[in-house]
């Protein structure tokens, strides 16, 4: 098992296609600039009253997701290429679970809270 030889069509997560150093640095620079822009927009939107207030949470979430995407592409070099299939599948499974856990928890807990008396009324006091 040699280290650099790429058998078949597979790439380690985080590895890029063979590029020269200049191109690679450029990739990080682009990523950094995009991320900084998105961050600045997020902070700006959160603090301003120039935009319609109820849209702010949605905008923040969208910006956050966009920025995560930027990180994934420019820093972690996750692409949709065939050499990345396995990496992307694992990521998709992870995201599905994250989505189910967070979404499910929030949904379930909202309903439980709506239907339940506060806990201290139905539990005995400590011994």
């Amino acid at each position: 098992m040699s280290d650099q030889a790429h058998i078949g069509h597979d790439l380690a997560p985080g590895d890029e296609e063979q590029h020269d150093v200049g191109t690679r640095i450029l990739g990080y620079v682009v990523g950094l600039v995009l991320a900084l822009l998105l961050t600045a927009t997020s902070f700006f939107i959160a603090g301003t009253d120039l935009v319609w207030q109820p849209s702010i949470p949605v905008a923040l979430i969208v910006l956050a997701i966009a920025q995560m995407g930027v990180h994934l592409v420019f820093f972690l070099h996750i692409t949709t290429g065939p050499d990345n299939t396995n990496n992307v599948l694992a990521l998709a499974f992870g995201l599905l679970v994250v989505f189910l856990v967070v979404g499910g928890t929030v949904w379930i807990m909202a309903h439980l809270n709506a239907n339940m008396p506060p806990m201290d009324q139905i539990m005995p006091k400590p011994m």
């Binding site: 928890t105 339940m116 806990m119 201290d120």
Partner: peptide
């Protein structure tokens, strides 16, 4: 916990 806004049901859920 029962006090300070803790939520037992969140344990069940998780």
């Amino acid at each position: 916990t029962n006090e300070a806004g803790g939520n037992v049901m969140m344990f069940m859920n998780l």
